[in-house]
Nucleic acid binder design. Structure first.
Length: 816
RNA sequence: GCGGGCGUGGCGGAACCCGGCAGACGCACCAGGCUUAGGACCUGGUGGACCGCACGGUCCGUGGGGGUUCGAAUCCCCCCGCCCGCACCA
C-alpha cells in the first residue's frame, strides 16, 4: 500500500509551486485561439462563502478544460470594492472603509488561492482604487458629452435604511423594497444624475447577437416592457395640449374623461379656483403615501375633478379632466384618456364617480345593454362614427391614421424601462466629476483633472447625507471654467457603474492613459463565456450591455454585446434546504472542509451535487462520497504504478477492456464539460475508477494499456481536482505540469463496440437480453429474437403481426 | 392577471435534446469482513407488490387523466401541485 492521500500537504505545496512559476499568468499566444472566460467578481465582504465557491469552482474547472483544449484562456479576478457594507462598518466600528475593504480583500485573496483556481492575479482589479474609479469618471464625462448623462429633478426611490436613492432596478418585489437591505422604499423629490439607458431600449431588446439563457432574455424583455400604441393629443379649453398614450386606439370613441397623474405638471395650471383646495389636498395625500400603500392590491380607484375640460380630437366632445393616483407619472406621458367600457381600471373609476360608460367595441353576442364589467377583448367597433363595423385590429390602424391626418396623434412606442439613476448619497463610491458654479452653472471636471479623488478623511455619521457634503475641503473648489469659487457634486456613483465595464479593465488594469488597451481588446474581446447568478438579470447584466453599446458608439469597441455566452449557476442552500443566513444558523463555511478534506474535495463535491444551474442544499454527509472517491483514485493510481510487473500482454481482451473503459469515459467527460454538466462528468469518472479497480483485480495492471489508462484518468481529473491530479501526474513520473498537457483525444477504435446487448421485447415489454455482434444485420437480429426461449414463451400460440428491428439496440415482436 | 420553469426511489440526482433495458453516480439504510468496542475502511445488497428452497420469474411504477406510437419518464392535449419573475404599465 502506498502512503495515504494527504490533501493538506499536497495542496499547499502545489499552490506555492504554481504561484512561483506563474503557471496561470496569461501571456497572449497568437498561435492559439483566444478564450475570455469571466466569472462575476465578488464583493469583498471579508469571508469567502460557500456560494463563492459554488460560483467559481465549476467556472475554474471549465476554464482549465478549455486551456487543455488548446485555447489561450484569460480567466481574471478582481473585487467589486465600493459599496455600503464598508461604510456601515465605518459607522458601527469606526474602521475606515478603505482599511476595512483592503483587509477583507487580503483575506479573500488567501481564501481564493486555497481553492486552487487558475486566476491570473496579475490582472486583478480593485474598483475602489483611484486607478480604477478614475475611469468611471472618464466614462461619466464621455456620457455627459454625448448627452447620455443628465441631471434632473424627479420623484425617486429612497431607501431610509441605506440613506440613499436607488435605481428602479434596485427596488424589488411587490413590496417595493430595497434590493440590498429589504427595507420598503419611499419617494423623494431630488435632483439626481441619470444615464440615458432608455435611448438604447429598442436595441437592448435584440438578443440575436448572443447566446444567453432564454430566462434572462425574458426577464430583460419584461423589464424593458415595450408596448406599441398611439399617442393621442387632446387640447384643453385653455389651449394646452395633453398627450396620452393608448394601446387601444380602436376604443378612442369611448374615451369619456382624462386622468392625469397627481404630479403632472399641468395640474397646477389647469385646476380651476373653486377646485383648488380639494385638488391640493388630494395631491398632498398621494405624495405622502408610500409605494406600498399606493400599489396595494384591489385598491379603490380614487381621483378628483380639477374643473377643466378638454376636446376630443376626433369628435370634439367636451371631456372632463381628473387627477387620479392610479395614473403613474413615470409611465407613458403621465396622463391617460379613460375608456371605461373597455378598461377595468377606468371602469372602476367611472362607476365610482358616476361617469358614462359608452360601449364602442361590441363584445360577442352583445345585447346592446350596459356592460356589467369592462370588456377588454377584441371586437367590432360601434358608436364610433365612420369606423362602425371595423374590427379592432384594423380599427387601431385606421383610427391612428385619422389622428395623424388631423395632426392629433401618431403611432408611438412606450417602454417601461426608466433611465438609470446613478446618484448615491453615500461616501464609499466614485465621486461624480461635476462642479456647480454660481456663474457657469453645471460644469464637468476636465478630463485632465481626473481622478476626482475621494478624500480619505471623512466623518461617518448616520445622518442620511453624504459625508462628502460636510467635507469642506472636498466640497469647496474653483470653477474649472471661470476660476470662481464653486462647489463639487457630493453624491457618488452607483456601484453598478463599476461593474458595467470591469471586464474591459482586466485587459490592462494599470493602464494610466485609457480605460483599457485597444490592442489587448482586439485580442481578447468580447467575453466568450460569462458565468454568474441570475439575480443580476435586470441590473448588472442590463447595465453592462448598455455600457458596451455606448462604448461602441464612442468607437471604443467594435461589437454590440459584451458577453457572447452566459451561464447562470443556481444557489447553494443550507443543509436545511433554506437560503443560508447567519440568523438561521445554517451557513456552511468552506474553510472547515478545506482544512479537513482539502480543496479538491470541496470543489468536486460542489460540482457533483447536481446540475450547476439548479443549485441545491449542501448535504454534509454527501461530501464523504467524494472524499472516498478521491481516496480510491489515489490508491488506484499509486498502488498499481508501473515498475514491478511481469511482461505486458499485448492486445489481450483485458487490455482492450481497459482502453475501452477509459476512452468511453473520456468521451462522456468531454461532452459533459462542453455543456457544463459537471455532475455527470464526475459520475462517469467514478464509474471509470470503479471499473478500472475491478479490471485490476482481474490482472489488467499487467497489460500495456494500464499505464496510459492511468495517465488519461489523471488528465481527465485535472480540471476538477487540480492538486490531486498534479501530485499523481508527478508520481507517475510525468513532466510538470499536468495543467500544461493537452486534453486527451478519444480513440474511435477503442470505444467501438464489438458486441452489444440486444434487448428483446414482446409487445414493448422486455423479455430477454442477448449478447450479439455489434454489426448484426437486422434479418439475423430478427431470427435471434424469434429463437429466444424467453421470447417464445410469450409468442407461442399467438400470431406474430410484426417484428420491429432497431439495429444495434432492440427487437420488438408484436403479437396479437 | 401576464410571462417563465419544474414534478422520477428514503434523499441529491441520471436517462428527456434525438421515443427503445427507468433509477447511472453518490448519500442514507441493511448484511458481512476488519476491530476488545465504536469510528474509519473494505465487500455485497437496496423502487414497490407478489411467486419461488434457490437459479429465477410475474405484475405495478416517472404528479393525475387522455392521445400519438410496435414501443412514452421522453412527443402532443387537458388538469393538479410547487417555484421564480413582472404586476394599476394605460
Amino acid at each position: 500500500m502506498s502512503e495515504p492521500y494527504d490533501p493538506k500537504a499536497i495542496e499547499a505545496r502545489w499552490q506555492r509551486r504554481w504561484e512561483a512559476d506563474g503557471l496561470y499568468r496569461v501571456a497572449p499566444d497568437p498561435s492559439r485561439p483566444k478564450f475570455y472566460f469571466l466569472t462575476m467578481y465578488p464583493y469583498p465582504s471579508g469571508d469567502l462563502h460557500i456560494g463563492h465557491w459554488y460560483a467559481m469552482a465549476p467556472s475554474d474547472c471549465k476554464a482549465r478544460y478549455l486551456r487543455m483544449r488548446g485555447y489561450d484562456v484569460l480567466f481574471p479576478i478582481g473585487f467589486d470594492a465600493f459599496g455600503l457594507p464598508a461604510e456601515n462598518a465605518a459607522i458601527q466600528h469606526g474602521i475606515h472603509p478603505y482599511k476595512w475593504t483592503m483587509a477583507n480583500i487580503e483575506r479573500m485573496r488567501g481564501q481564493l488561492r486555497s481553492m486552487g483556481a487558475m486566476f491570473d492575479w496579475s490582472r486583478e482589479v480593485v474598483t475602489c482604487r483611484p486607478e480604477y474609479y478614475k475611469w468611471n469618471q472618464w466614462f461619466f464625462l464621455k456620457f455627459y458629452d454625448a448627452g447620455l448623462a443628465y441631471r434632473a429633478m424627479a420623484a425617486v426611490d429612497w431607501c431610509p435604511r441605506c440613506n440613499t436613492t436607488l435605481a428602479r432596478e434596485q427596488v424589488v418585489g411587490a413590496e417595493r423594497v430595497c434590493e440590498r437591505c429589504g427595507t420598503p422604499v419611499i419617494k423623494k423629490d431630488l435632483e439626481q444624475w441619470f444615464f440615458r439607458i432608455t435611448k438604447y431600449a429598442e436595441e437592448l431588446l435584440d438578443f440575436s447577437k448572443m447566446d444567453w439563457p432564454e430566462r434572462v432574455a425574458t426577464l430583460q424583455r419584461n423589464w424593458i416592457g415595450r408596448s406599441e400604441g398611439t399617442e393621442v393629443v387632446y387640447t384643453t379649453e385653455q389651449g394646452d395640449p395633453i398627450t396620452v398614450f393608448t394601446t387601444r386606439p380602436d376604443t378612442l370613441f369611448g374615451a369619456t374623461f382624462l386622468v392625469l397623474a397627481p404630479e403632472h405638471p399641468l395640474v397646477e395650471k389647469l385646476t380651476t379656483p373653486e377646485r383648488r383646495a380639494e385638488v391640493a389636498a388630494y395631491v398632498q395625500r398621494a405624495r405622502r403615501q408610500t409605494e406600498i400603500e399606493r400599489l396595494a392590491e384591489d385598491r379603490e380607484k380614487t381621483g378628483v375633478f380639477i374643473g377643466a375640460y378638454a376636446r376630443h380630437p376626433l369628435t370634439g366632445a367636451r371631456i372632463p379632466i381628473y387627477i387620479g393616483d392610479y395614473v403613474l407619472l413615470t409611465y407613458g406621458t403621465g396622463a391617460i384618456h379613460a375608456v371605461p367600457a373597455h378598461d377595468t381600471r377606468d371602469y372602476a373609476f367611472a362607476k365610482r364617480y358616476k361617469l358614462p360608460i359608452p360601449v364602442v367595441i361590441a363584445p360577442p353576442d352583445w345585447d346592446g345593454k350596459p356592460l356589467p364589467e369592462a370588456y377588454i377583448g377584441e371586437g367590432v367597433m360601434v358608436n364610433s362614427g365612420p369606423f362602425d363595423g371595423t374590427p379592432s385590429a384594423e380599427g387601431r390602424r385606421r383610427v391612428t391614421e385619422a389622428l395623424e391626418r388631423a395632426g392629433r396623434g401618431r403611432p408611438a412606442v412606450t417602454y417601461r424601462l426608466r433611465d438609470w439613476l446613478i446618484s448615491r448619497q453615500r461616501y464609499w463610491g466614485t465621486p461624480i466629476p461635476i462642479v456647480y458654479c454660481p456663474r457657469c452653472g453645471t460644469v464637468p471636471v476636465p478630463y485632465e483633472h481626473l481622478p476626482v479623488l475621494l478624500p480619505e478623511d471623512a466623518e461617518f455619521l448616520p445622518t442620511g447625507e453624504s459625508p462628502l457634503r460636510h467635507h469642506e475641503g472636498f466640497r469647496r473648489t474653483t470653477c474649472p471654467r471661470c476660476g470662481a469659487p464653486a462647489e463639487r457634486e457630493t453624491d457618488t456613483m452607483d456601484t453598478f457603474v463599476d461593474s458595467s465595464w470591469y471586464q474591459y479593465r482586466y485587459l490592462s488594469p494599470h493602464d494610466p492613459d485609457r480605460p483599457f488597451d485597444p490592442e489587448a481588446g482586439r485580442r481578447w474581446l468580447p467575453v466568450d463565456q460569462y458565468t454568474g447568478g441570475v439575480e443580476h438579470a435586470v441590473m448588472h447584466l442590463l447595465y453592462t450591455r448598455f455600457f458596451t453599446k455606448v462604448m461602441r458608439d464612442l468607437g471604443l469597441v467594435a461589437f454590440d454585446e459584451p458577453m457572447v455566452r452566459l451561464f447562470n449557476q443556481g444557489i447553494i442552500l443550507g443543509p436545511d434546504g433554506n437560503r443560508m443566513s447567519k440568523s438561521r444558523g445554517n451557513v456552511v463555511n468552506p474553510d472547515d472542509y478545506v482544512g479537513t478534506m482539502g480543496a479538491d474535495v470541496v470543489r468536486a463535491y460542489l460540482m457533483f451535487l447536481g446540475p450547476w444551474d439548479s443549485g441545491g442544499p449542501w448535504n454534509p454527509q454527501g461530501i464523504e462520497g467524494i472524499h472516498r472517491f478521491l481516496h480510491r483514485v489515489w490508491h488506484l493510481v499509486l498502488d498499481t504504478a508501473p515498475g514491478d510487473e511481469t511482461p505486458p500482454e499485448a492486445g489481450s481482451p483485458l487490455a482492450s477492456a481497459v482502453r475501452r473503459t477509459v476512452h468511453r469515459t473520456l468521451r462522456r467527460v468531454t461532452d459533459d464539460l462542453e455543456s457544463f454538466r459537471f455532475n455527470t462528468a464526475l459520475a462517469a469518472l467514478m464509474e471509470c475508477t470503479n471499473a478500472l479497480a475491478r479490471l485490476r483485480d482481474e490482472g489488467a495492471s499487467r497489460t500495456a494499456e494500464w499505464a496510459p489508462a492511468l495517465r488519461t484518468l489523471v488528465l481527465m481529473l485535472a480540471p476538477f481536482t487540480p492538486h490531486l491530479a498534479e501530485e499523481l501526474w508527478a508520481r507517475l513520473g510525468q513532466p510538470y505540469s499536468v495543467h500544461r498537457q493537452p486534453w486527451p483525444e478519444v480513440d474511435p477504435d477503442a470505444v467501438r463496440e464489438e458486441t452489444i446487448t440486444l434487448v428483446l421485447q414482446v409487445n414493448g415489454r422486455v423479455r430477454d437480453r442477448v449478447t450479439v455482434p455489434a454489426d448484426l444485420p437486422a434479418a439475423q437480429a430478427r431470427d435471434v429474437a424469434l429463437a429466444s426461449e424467453k421470447v417464445r414463451r410469450f409468442i407461442d400460440g399467438k400470431a406474430v403481426e410484426d417484428v420491429i428491428v432497431v439495429p444495434g439496440k432492440l427487437v420488438n415482436v408484436v403479437v396479437r
